[in-house]
Every structure is written in C-alpha cells, then in structure tokens.
C-alpha cells in the first residue's frame, strides 16, 4: 500500500517541477526571440557598413519586439517568484483573487498547448483566507488540469469564486464532458491528500459541468460544505 505522506510529497514536488519546467521553457522561447532580434540588428549593421540603406522603421519594429518580450518575461518571472514564495510559510493570509490570477498565469501555457481558453471571472471581492498558499495552488492546478481534460468541444475553462460566512467557494466551470465519464475520475488520492491538508472539500455538479472547492476562511476551522 502506498503511504499517504509519500503521495503528498511526490505531488508537491511534481507540481513544483511541472511549473518551473514550463516557466523555464517559456523563458527559453523568449530568449530565442531576443537572440534572433539581436542577430537581426547585427545583420542590419553589416548591411549599413556595406552602404545598404536601412529603413528606421525596421529598427523600430525590432525594438518594440524586444520590449514586448521583456514585458512577457517580467510577467512570467513574477509568477515564478510568487510560486517560489508560496512555500515560505505553511499558512498565511492569501487573497483569493490574487491566488486565482496566479493559478491562471501558471496554467496559461498548458492551456495554450491544448488550445483551451482559460477565463478568470473579474471580481472586486478582496476576500482572503488563512491557508497553505502552496498547497492551494497545487490543488487549483489539479482542478484546472482535470477541467481542461474534460472541457469537450467548448474548450473554455472558467474560474470564479464566491465568499460565504466561513468559507470561500471556488468554481471551475466548462467541464462539458464531466457527466460522460463512466467512473469518477476526480478527486484522485493526490487531490484527496491536498484537501485534507487544506481542510477543504470538493463537490462536483455534473449537470452544470462544474467542480466546486469549499475552502475554510481559516485552515484551522472545521468546514461544512454549505458554510
């Protein structure tokens, strides 16, 4: 029998590894664009040295391209930094809106690879919960990953949240093929371990094609599904 602690540790490492591998891959793509842009500038320089006139607009295009890639890299490294700092403390207060924004940022490349649109519902709700930020990110990723697998022809996965008295409900929508699954595929042992860690519960609404995560406002407080 597999030890539950081992599943938890393996899941944590797998999640961290998957995210950092994806981030480094994307940074490599950005570096490749900047590298070729620098090379193109060198080409223009050689042409200019030979007396071939260079249209200043072409230089402008390259400079804008580099700026856009630096901004893209800045967003990616900011996400990486937030993920890295999520293990600083086992539990602390985290904003739900910020947590979901980070989750979408981290999952974006995986969604792009599967031609799926991730839609985070805009919210002015500044709710925060006392929880384990890293384990919460891990669980939201597992939910998004599963949702993308069963998003069907709609190929759109939504993310939204509502605040209750003692809990926050995070809804993942767009799981069009959820009702077609022959046997329950979610949550697996991996997610169950995370749920226990977060003192949270999960419900599936097969008809609506949604998964609901009920997260206590305080990880140490007992949780009932409708609180």
């Amino acid at each position: 029998m597999v030890d539950r602690n081992s599943i938890g540790i393996a899941s944590e490492l797998q999640f961290f590894g998957k995210m950092t591998a994806s981030i480094s891959h994307e940074i490599k793509n950005i570096m490749a664009i900047i590298n070729e842009s620098a090379g193109l500038l060198e080409d223009y320089n050689l042409m200019a040295e030979k007396g071939i006139p260079i249209d200043p607009e072409r230089i402008q295009v390259i400079s804008q391209r580099v700026i856009a890639q630096i901004q893209r890299a800045d967003g990616i490294t900011a996400n990486m930094n937030s993920l890295a700092h999520s293990v600083d403390e086992f539990q602390r207060s985290v904003g739900i809106k910020e947590t979901l924004e980070l989750a979408v940022g981290l999952a974006q490349r995986f969604a792009d690879m599967r031609s799926i649109t991730l839609k985070l519902q805009p919210s002015s709700d500044a709710s925060a919960v006392i929880t384990s930020p890293f384990h919460l990110q891990n669980l939201i990723w597992q939910m998004l990953d599963f949702a993308m697998d069963v998003s069907g022809d709609g190929k759109t996965v939504g993310l939204t949240f509502e605040t209750g008295k003692a809990s926050v409900k995070i809804r993942v929508t767009g799981l069009e093929e959820l009702s077609n699954l022959s046997e329950p595929a979610f949550p697996t042992e991996k997610e169950k371990a995370l749920l226990r860690m977060l003192n949270a519960t999960i419900q599936q609404d097969e008809k609506a094609g949604e998964i609901h995560l009920f997260l206590p406002k305080d990880i140490d407080q007992a949780l009932t599904a409708n609180s």
């Binding site: 793509n29 490749a32 664009i33 070729e36 842009s37 090379g39 193109l40 080409d43 390259i62 391209r65 856009a68 890639q69 792009d112």
Partner: peptide
C-alpha cells in the same frame, strides 16, 4: 514554430543568407 515573433525574425535572417 508557434511563436510568430520567432518565426518572423528567424525567417528574415535566413532569407538574408
């Protein structure tokens, strides 16, 4: 390549060669 910016830059450099 799915990175259009990479394609455009690379293509221009290769065509120059």
């Amino acid at each position: 390549d799915d990175e259009k910016e990479f394609l455009d830059t690379m293509a221009e450099r290769m065509e120059a060669r």
